[in-house]
Design a protein around this nucleic acid. Structure first.
Length: 136
RNA sequence: GCUAUCAGCCGGGUUAUCGUUCUCUAAUUUAUUAGGGGAAGGAAAGUCCGGACAGCACAGAGCAACACACCGGUUAACAACCGGCUUCGGAAUGUUUAGUGGAGACACUAACCAUGGCGAAAGAGACAGGGCCACAGAAAAUUACCGCUCCUCUCUUGACAUACUUCGACAAGCUCAGUAUGACAAGAGAGGAGUAAGGGUGAAAACGUGAGGUAAGAGCUCACGGGUUUUUGCAGUAAUGCAUCAAUCGGGUAAACCUUGUGUGCUGUAAUGCCACGUAAACCGGCGUUUGAGGGCGGCUCGUCCGAUGCCGAAGGGUAGGCAGCAAGAUUGUAACAGUAAUGUUGCAGCCAGAUAAAUGAUAACCGGGUGUUUGACCUUUAGCUUGGUUACACAAACACUUACAGAAUCCGGCUUACAGGCUGAUAGAUUUU
RNA sequence: GGCCUCGUAGUACAAUGGAUAGUAUAAGAGUUUCCGAAGCUCCAGAUUCAAGUUCGAUUCUUGACGAGGCCA
C-alpha cells in the first residue's frame, strides 16, 4: 500500500457493523460541513485502520434511485481522496470509524461533492494529528 | 405515405481511465495478486389478488367474518387470461322525410330508422323480508288532499200538481195571493261511496298512443307498440337467440342491511432449523401442581393435545453475529404439432444477480435516436437578380435542446400505477399516385 | 422485505348519504382602556387527489398520493 497508490474501497473499509454505528450515534463526536454531517470516533473494535459509512435520508429523497446516486457519488469522491488520512492512521496505530450523512435537499453534481469531501477529509486529518499529539 | 383507435414488442451503443460484488483457476506472504466468467426491470414500484414453500395438531366441528357472482374454456391457483352472450356508449355509412340554396345535377342542415369498426360493464336476487328516498309536491309506495261522479239528509230559490182559505181586490166559483204535502231542476252545506283521467313538483309519479266504454273513470275492453315471466318447437355444450302459446305490467336503492349459491383454518422467509457469544433461576405482587394455572400466534363456543424447578403482571439484565432457507425452476430460448384463442404436448439447446448501512458504478470523448429553427429546397413574376409566398411531401447541411420512468432483497402467475422515444400488426376514415 | 392504521379551517376535534360542513382556539378588524391583557361584536378560512355507485357523497367502492406504527 505504501509503494503504489491504489484507490480501492473494499468490504473491510466499509462501516457495516450495526453495533459500531449505534455507538457512533451515541458517544461519537460530530461536525457539520454543508451538505454533510460527519460522525467520527476512535475505536478498537474494527479491524481496518479506517472504516467509513454513507447515508442519505429517505425523508429528503423518496426515490431509491436518487439515494443510490448520491451514495455512489459520495463513495467515489471519498475513494479518490482518502489515502492520505489512511496512511496517517496506519502510522499512528489508530482505528477511526467515520459516518457521513448527506443532509442537503437537492441532487448534487459530481464536482460539488468532490470539493466538499476534500474539506471533510482535511478536517479529519487535522483531528487525527491533534489526537496523536495529545497521546504522545 | 397520412390521421384515429386497439393489440403486441423494444426501451441506446463504443472506447479510455479508476473502482464494486460473486464465482472459477493458479501462485504464495493466508489475504492478497494475476487471469477468465457472471452481475438490475418492463414495470424490479404499489403490495391489490392468487399460489409455491415453512411453522402452528399430517388443520377438526359449528357460528361469526371475509371474498366472489352471465355462460363455456384455460390454469398449480385466482377477483387473472381467452372465446362467446346480454345491456349500454358510439366514430362513421346508408335509406326516407322536411327545410335552405340552385334552372338542374346536386350540396348543406335537421329528424326517424337500419347497419355499425371499436370501446365499457363490481353483469345473481328489489315477486323472501323489513329499512331509506332531504327540499319541493296532493301523494315517494296498496296511498287519497283538491278535483270529478253517484247516493242520503238539511236549507234556499224556481216553476208544476194536489189539498185548504184567517184576511184581500168583488156575492160565489175560477184565477192571483198565502200555507201544507209531493215529486222535479239549480245552488250551498254535511255525511257515505266510487275514481285514479287531471294537479307540473321532483332525480324519479303508477306501461305509451288512439278508440270504445262508463255516473265519473280506470288495461276495464280493443288495435298498434314496449317490458317481465312462462309453455312448446328449432339452433347452440351453455349463457342466449328466433318463432309460438299463455299470464302479467304497482318507482329507485343490494358499491346500506339482507337472501341464494360457491369458496376460504391462521401467520408469514424478520417464516423456520442449526451454530456461536452473552446475561439474572435477582427482587416484588397474583394464580396454580391431577379438585389443572396456563398454552398450542384466528373473533366466540366446542373438541383435542401439551402441561409443573410452571404461568401471568410489574421492574430490570443480556445478545442483536454466522450458516442453511437462497437461486435448476408451474425455468429460459427456439422449432414442430393440437386449439379460433388463452394455453398445452413433444424435441433440441442453455444455466441466466444473490447484496445485507445493502454490490452492479464514476468521469471524459465520440456515435446513434427524437424535436425545433435556419439555409439549401419548392412556387410565382422576370432574360436574370432582388422582392413575395409555401414549407404539404422527399432529401442534405449547420446550430440548439433533448435522450424517459425508475434500482432486485424467498420465488413465481396476474392486476394497477409511472414512462423520452421507437418498431410491428389489425380495423376504420380521408386523400394522392399508379 | 413483510404486516397494519389514518388523512376535515393554521391547530385539536365533530358531523344518520340530504339545507350555507359545525365547535373550541389561533389569525384579522372593531369596541372597551391612559396603554396592554381579559371580555364583547364581526369577518375570512377546510373535507389529500382522481374515477365510479347514487337524484345527491366528508360518509359507500376502487385506484393514486401522503403521514404514522409494528416485527428477530
Amino acid at each position: 500500500m505504501e509503494t503504489k497508490q491504489r484507490y480501492t474501497f473494499k468490504k473491510d473499509e466499509k462501516l457495516k457493523s450495526r453495533k459500531t454505528i449505534e455507538q457512533l450515534f451515541k458517544d461519537g463526536r460530530s461536525f457539520s460541513n454543508f451538505p454533510f454531517r460527519v460522525l467520527w470516533k476512535f475505536t478498537e473494535t474494527v479491524k481496518a485502520p479506517l472504516q467509513t459509512g454513507f447515508a442519505v435520508s429517505s425523508k429528503h429523497f423518496k426515490k431509491a434511485v436518487d439515494r443510490n446516486r448520491i451514495k455512489r457519488l459520495m463513495r467515489e469522491a471519498y475513494r479518490l481522496q482518502k489515502n492520505e488520512l489512511q496512511i496517517q492512521l496506519t502510522q499512528g496505530q489508530k482505528q477511526l470509524a467515520v459516518f457521513i450523512i448527506y443532509v442537503g435537499n437537492e441532487l448534487p453534481d459530481y464536482d460539488f461533492i468532490v470539493e466538499k469531501t476534500g474539506h471533510v477529509l482535511t478536517r479529519l486529518i487535522k483531528i487525527t494529528n491533534e489526537n496523536l499529539a495529545a497521546n504522545t
